[in-house]
């Protein structure tokens, strides 16, 4: 697998949300608008790249039996970094995403890539893998957020398309997340098979 394939697999072939169904908690929780989805996706991307980078460097030095705890500590550190930096410099977005930022720690995508890829590969492929997976995750979250925002409030990225009175509120609420995700997965599956 070359670097290009390594990068692009995160978008379509092994998309974390639509294909692997990993990281469902933030996917369903924060995607009430496109901007929230994008913010969450980018925060996760940062954590993915950084943790993949560090783990690919140090994995040979970590004994097998303490592998998972070590990875978790490394991931949690980067999540805390994101949390603090966002609270300081983009407080509005930080407030919107709320508890889901600290919860990136338990996002299966991050630990999954650390365990399945970064700990077995060299530095550069690990970074590329993290970036690809993270951006694919961001793309999925943004798509889901845009769909929900469009149907729920008539806007996309806060740009009004149709009048808010005609929006279907259910899409902004929790049940709408499941509905929208289900139909998006169905469409992507259809496209993958075609």
């Amino acid at each position: 697998m070359n670097n290009m394939q390594n990068f692009t697999k995160g978008f379509f072939k092994e998309n974390a949300v639509f294909v692997l169904l990993l990281g469902m908690c933030p996917t369903l929780g924060v995607t009430s608008s496109a901007i929230n989805g994008l913010g969450m996706g980018l925060a996760t991307t940062f954590v993915l790249i950084m943790s993949n980078l560090v783990i690919s460097l140090v994995s040979t030095m970590i004994p097998d039996k303490v592998k998972i705890p070590s990875f978790i500590v490394i991931i949690a550190s980067f999540v805390t970094i994101v949390d603090l930096v966002m609270a300081g410099y983009v407080p509005a977005l930080h407030e919107q995403l709320g508890v889901f930022i600290p919860l990136i720690v338990v996002n299966c995508v991050v630990l999954g890539r650390a365990e399945a890829f970064a700990s077995k590969n060299k530095l550069v492929p690990s970074i590329i893998d993290g970036a690809g997976m993270g951006l694919g995750f961001s793309m999925a979250l943004t798509m889901l957020g845009a769909v929900r925002e469009f149907f729920g409030t008539g806007k996309v990225f806060d740009f009004p398309i149709f009048k808010e009175n005609y929006g279907m509120l259910v899409f902004v609420l929790a049940p709408g997340a499941f509905l929208a995700l289900g139909y998006l997965i169905a469409i992507i599956n259809r496209l993958r098979k075609a």
Binding site: V58, M61, I62, P63, K65, V66, S70, V73, I74
Partner: peptide, 16 residues
């Protein structure tokens, strides 16, 4: 690869 001996594990976790 480091062996999973007690001292190794403590040391690695401590450093991390």
């Amino acid at each position: 690869k480091k062996e999973s001996t007690f001292i190794n594990m403590v040391l690695v976790l401590f450093i991390i």
